[in-house]
Design a protein around this nucleic acid. Structure first.
Lengths: 206, 206
DNA sequence: GTCTATACTACGATAGAC
DNA sequence: GTCTATCGTAGTATAGAC
């Protein structure tokens, strides 16, 4: 029962070429296993795809869990504390978008955003919803002047600023005039994102 | 020489299934043409793909041209005028991200962002660079306190807020608790985006 | 210029030995 | 539980009629 290498290769290949573009032959070969072991362990190509989605959801949860578990646990009593945690959460998300080792996950997820299948359900419920709902709850406390819908819209726009670092990576590199995002550029982008969020959260505070 | 239906179908199929997932058989069949006419007109699958990218770039340029030609032509003399045009440009971009008829283009482009090929060059130079550089130039005037790199980073984060409306569409719907983005929600998101941009541009103006 | 017919390759699934 | 062998299908490209 050693199906993990198969799963790792599947995440890479599905992320890189999409469900239809990736081939079970190639996945099996790169994993050093027979093609038929995919049928045995996962029931077929689709089962392997869903298992890959579950694994990505677990990976993201594990990576983010400490941060937003702390955010949930912290007794947040003031607006300033809420803003502080919002900045930490969005920065954590941005860091995840910038980490090289989340590239394959991101490819997989973005494909699912374009054409959601059952895999998107698993990704959303397992990895995105906890972060999003934690964020929305805190944002409601930081901007009590906004109603629920506006709070949710604002949360999405915040995450959009981090998302572009992955989903628009090629354009980011072109606009910045670089080949890849080095550490200095990553820090510059993160700092600018934090400044934006801070600016918007502080609006009307004075 | 009526290769346009072939090209329209190609944009749809490549956008929906990716380069490897789309099949020339299906594209030819849906266009009511023989498979071999793809070879005749475009040299093969790859030629058809690049031609599709060129057509998308043209479409975007035509859609945005009036707006940012006006922005370039306008004699912008004050910071307030620069901010006014920046708001119009980003809102125009957001509207494009929300329009149903740009969905297929967006799918195609986002796939190219993940894995840039020669098609990305054509898209960037033909459609994205003009908008991005116009935006950066205006942003430099609105935020003279920032240096070039920071201005470019800020521009990217602004576009990220609009990009999420397409690239993260499935998550947007989940977080907002809706099936598809109706007009009210679209207006809400656009208004919130304009408010964000306005807030950040006005920072330190007082 | 557009078609049909076909060559050749790669796909996913499965049967059956071990 | 993992392998090899093979089946049937679908992919791109091309040759050649019209």
């Amino acid at each position: 029962m050693k199906s993990e290498p198969l799963l790792d290769t599947a995440i890479e290949q599905f992320g890189r070429h999409g469900f239809e573009g990736a081939s079970t032959r190639q996945i099996a070969k790169a994993s050093g296993a027979a093609m038929s072991s995919i049928t045995y362990h996962f029931g077929g190509k689709e089962g392997l795809y869903l298992a890959a989605a579950d694994r990505i959801a677990s990976g993201i949860s594990e990576m983010q869990a400490p941060l937003f578990a702390a955010a949930r646990a912290a007794a947040i009593e003031s607006r300033e504390q809420a803003i502080d945690w919002l900045l930490r959460l969005i920065d954590g998300f941005a860091q995840m978008m910038l980490r090289p080792d989340t590239e394959l996950w991101a490819r997989f997820i973005i494909r699912e955003q374009l054409d959601p299948t059952e895999a998107f359900d698993r990704l959303y419920r397992g990895a995105m919803a906890p972060l999003a709902e934690t964020f929305v709850a805190l944002l409601g406390r930081a901007r009590i002047d906004l109603d629920e819908k506006d709070v949710r819209a604002l949360a999405l726009l915040f995450f959009g600023q981090a998302l572009v670092l992955r989903a628009g990576r090629a354009s980011v590199c072109r606009v910045m005039g670089i080949d890849r995002i080095d550490e200095d550029t990553a820090n510059l982008l993160r700092a600018r994102l934090r400044a934006n969020v801070h600016c918007i959260l502080m609006e009307k505070l004075a």
